[in-house]
Each structure stands twice: as C-alpha cells, then as structure tokens.
Lab assay of single mutants.
Amino acid sequence: LGPKYVGLWDFKSRTDEELSFRAGDVFHVARKEEQWWWATLLDEAGGAVAQGYVPHNYLAERE
C-alpha cells in the first residue's frame, strides 16, 4: 500500500468530501492533489475506517 502517514494536528472537516481526524491518527494516502490528499483513515489493526480529503500539511510520513 505504500507509506503510511500520521496526523500532526486535529482537523475538522468543512465539507462532505473532507475527513475529520485527530492528531496521531494513521492514514494511507491514495492520491496527492496539490493542497488536498485523498486518504483512508486506518484503525489500529490497519483496517479502513473512512475516506476523504485531508490537508497535506496536516500529515507527516510515518517512519
């Protein structure tokens, strides 16, 4: 699936296409579209919880 990303700060969605998340949440990014990335929010087991657009500057690649 490629690298995983972690949320740096809490983010509250403003549209139906955006995905709310908390700092520390883990994502798989499917598409990078300039300022907004289409991402899947993952649970602790790595299963998909939700999908939506997230601001790229709120995520960091997980080491």
Score class of each variant (00 low, 15 high):
2 G>K: 13
2 G>Y: 15
2 G>L: 13
2 G>P: 12
3 P>G: 10
4 K>D: 09
4 K>I: 15
4 K>W: 14
6 V>E: 06
6 V>L: 05
7 G>W: 06
7 G>Q: 02
8 L>A: 03
8 L>H: 03
9 W>Q: 07
9 W>D: 04
9 W>K: 11
10 D>Y: 07
10 D>M: 05
10 D>V: 10
11 F>L: 02
11 F>A: 01
11 F>Y: 15
12 K>G: 06
13 S>T: 02
13 S>A: 15
13 S>Y: 02
14 R>V: 10
14 R>G: 12
14 R>S: 15
15 T>D: 08
15 T>V: 09
15 T>W: 08
16 D>G: 10
18 E>A: 09
19 L>S: 00
20 S>H: 03
20 S>E: 06
21 F>P: 01
21 F>M: 02
23 A>T: 05
23 A>H: 05
24 G>V: 01
24 G>L: 06
24 G>C: 07
24 G>Q: 03
24 G>P: 03
25 D>H: 03
25 D>P: 01
25 D>M: 07
25 D>N: 07
26 V>C: 08
27 F>Y: 01
27 F>R: 01
27 F>I: 05
28 H>W: 12
28 H>N: 08
29 V>I: 10
29 V>Y: 04
29 V>P: 03
29 V>W: 04
30 A>Y: 13
30 A>R: 08
31 R>S: 09
31 R>E: 07
31 R>P: 04
32 K>W: 06
32 K>L: 04
32 K>R: 09
33 E>F: 11
33 E>M: 09
35 Q>Y: 15
35 Q>A: 11
35 Q>M: 13
35 Q>S: 12
37 W>Q: 00
37 W>C: 03
38 W>P: 00
38 W>H: 03
38 W>A: 01
39 A>N: 00
40 T>I: 15
41 L>M: 09
44 E>M: 08
44 E>K: 10
45 A>D: 14
47 G>A: 14
48 A>M: 11
48 A>P: 12
49 V>K: 08
49 V>L: 11
49 V>T: 07
49 V>Q: 07
50 A>L: 07
51 Q>W: 11
52 G>D: 01
52 G>Q: 00
53 Y>S: 04
53 Y>N: 02
53 Y>P: 01
53 Y>R: 10
53 Y>K: 12
54 V>A: 01
54 V>M: 01
55 P>C: 06
56 H>W: 12
56 H>C: 15
57 N>S: 10
58 Y>D: 02
58 Y>N: 03
59 L>V: 04
59 L>W: 03
61 E>L: 15
61 E>F: 08
61 E>A: 10
63 E>K: 12
63 E>F: 11
63 E>T: 13
63 E>C: 12
